Measured scan of single mutants.
Amino acid sequence: EIHIRTNGEEQARKVYKMLAKRNYDVKIEQHNGQWVVTAS
């Protein structure tokens, strides 16, 4: 499982799309105001 911390919604969405293209199961979560993308 991969966790990627991003500094904002826009970046989180870019990372989300990139990983989704590679057939990862991707989730975006917010932790303490930080956007974290989780891929498995």
Rank of each mutant, 00 (worst) to 15 (best):
G33R: 04
H31Y: 12
N32F: 07
W35V: 01
E1V: 15
I28P: 00
K27H: 08
E29N: 08
K17E: 14
E29L: 09
N7I: 09
I4P: 01
N23M: 10
T38Q: 04
E1M: 14
I2P: 02
V26W: 02
E10T: 09
I2M: 06
E29R: 08
H3N: 08
V36I: 13
K14V: 07
V36S: 06
G33D: 06
E1L: 14
W35P: 00
V36A: 04
G8W: 12
N23K: 08
L19D: 00
L19I: 02
V26I: 05
G33M: 04
E1I: 15
T6E: 03
N32Q: 08
N23A: 08
K17N: 12
R5P: 05
T38E: 03
D25V: 14
G8R: 13
L19G: 00
M18Y: 14
S40R: 13
E9P: 11
R22N: 07
T6W: 04
N23V: 04
H3S: 12
D25N: 14
V37W: 02
D25W: 10
N7K: 09
E10W: 12
G8Q: 11
T6F: 15
G33P: 01
Q11R: 07
A12L: 02
E29M: 11
V15L: 14
E29F: 15
T38V: 14
R22K: 10
R13H: 06
K27Y: 07
K27M: 06
N23D: 06
I4K: 01
N7R: 12
K14W: 14
N23G: 15
M18Q: 07
V26M: 02
E9I: 14
K17Q: 12
K17P: 01
T6S: 05
I28D: 00
G8S: 15
N7Y: 11
G33V: 03
G33E: 06
K14N: 06
E9M: 09
N32E: 09
K17M: 13
E10L: 11
K27P: 00
S40P: 05
R22W: 14
V26L: 04
A20E: 07
Q30C: 14
K14L: 11
H3A: 08
H3C: 15
D25Y: 12
S40T: 12
N32D: 10
G8D: 15
Q30W: 10
T38F: 09
D25Q: 13
G33Y: 03
R22Y: 12
V36L: 09
I2S: 02
N32L: 07
G8L: 12
Q34A: 09
T38D: 02
G33N: 06
T6M: 11
Q30H: 11
R5A: 07
H3L: 13
R5V: 14
R13V: 06
